[in-house]
Write a protein that binds this DNA or RNA. Structure first.
Lengths: 204, 204
DNA sequence: GTTAGCATGTAAGGAGTTACATGATTTT
DNA sequence: AAAATCATGTAACTCCTTACATGCTAAC
């Protein structure tokens, strides 16, 4: 019903689409998946699960694990609605799809989407990063007077990181287009011919 | 009074410590500084300023800009309390100091701290990143069975980014220790001898 | 003339965290 | 014997975003 993108929910849908799981395990997988940003807390996960339950996206089943003395586990499983919702969310590529968190989650589930959606997400993200680079560069030119050494160094490092991600995305995009699903080469980081900053690489 | 680290507040203190400014300009500088993560909205900045005003960290002065038809601007200036608070916050290097956002802000203001504080922040951040790497690596080894191609590629890219930042930090740390304030060389990214992942580089 | 930038704010709401509550089991 | 991990949850709170409200000025 609600068209809220809500990254956590998408992640849960995707993980449960692979296989049913209980909350604790879900959190572990989630943290591994998002890993490099936030670490999701129970105070966030459990209420999300309850909400999804109310929305009939998932169903619960209480399971008593074999050494029966252990705490009960509640295993969650996708409903047909949930599965449909996941498919819809993955193909509806809106501008939220290229935000840091959301991008990571979508990327993780790329195997379960079609080429077209993948390309739209990859290209959308790349465009967004390139815009960020341009904006920061023009702003730096205007404010160039008082440049603190450290502030500048941080800026430089940030830019390099973003440029690196742009190259990574460009490599992935070519790989997708060539039908080569993944650059099987570890040296993705080298100069790949993709001009780092300037190219606007107009999309389809 | 409140010992809340609150990154936004620290950033405002630091910027106003450089020179008085009005809200709009503050936001621009803030966005340039944090730039690569969030972009701060007015709905966040103005209430923060009001709060800091109530806490007597800053003072306001209404200024009518020269083409008098323009909107009034409210210029904020640090009080002595505010200046003291900034100095205290910058030297009190707690574990929050190596969180992404907070780290960036502190780093930007490094010129206004002593060598010791700088080293503690840099080393703290490096240790934290190395812990993250180790945790993810051990977890990957345990969950290694069902490795989705895309999920794995994202993981790999994330790891490389973090390793890159660790090298960057290591270079900065050596530079600080050698009295060379900054690696004036652009090729910081190359192999610098700093072993990427394994070294725990026990701190002082 | 219309878009972008200048300039300050408020109200409602979203997404998540920390701390609390509880307790068994496995590893070191 | 202590520490980590398994396991589920709630209440209070924080920080931030979006949308609204208002209006002028510079650049294209």
């Amino acid at each position: 019903m609600s068209r809220r993108a809500e990254t956590t929910e998408l992640a849960v849908l995707g993980l449960l689409d692979e296989s049913p799981m209980h909350g604790y395990e879900l959190r572990k997988r989630l943290n591994l998946m998002l890993g490099w940003g936030r670490v999701l807390s129970y105070g966030s996960l459990y209420p999300t699960l309850k909400r999804m339950l109310r929305a009939s996206l998932i169903e619960e089943e209480v399971v008593s694990p074999l050494p029966a003395t252990r705490r009960l586990r509640i295993v969650y499983r996708l409903t047909d609605d949930g599965r449909a919702q996941f498919a819809r969310a993955m193909s509806e590529v809106g501008p939220t799809a290229w935000e840091d968190e959301s991008f990571g989650v979508r990327f993780s589930f790329f195997s379960r989407t079609d080429l077209e959606s993948r390309l739209r997400v990859l290209e959308g993200r790349r465009t967004r990063l390139q815009e960020r680079l341009e904006r920061v560069q023009t702003q730096l030119e205007r404010t160039q007077k008082e440049v603190d050494r450290y502030a500048e160094e941080l800026q430089r490092h940030g830019m390099e990181s973003v440029e690196r991600e742009v190259r990574w995305l460009s490599d992935l995009i070519s790989a997708e287009r060539n039908g080569t699903p993944m650059p099987r080469d570890e040296q993705t980081t080298r100069e790949t011919g993709s001009s780092t900053t300037a190219t606007t690489t107009g999309e389809s």
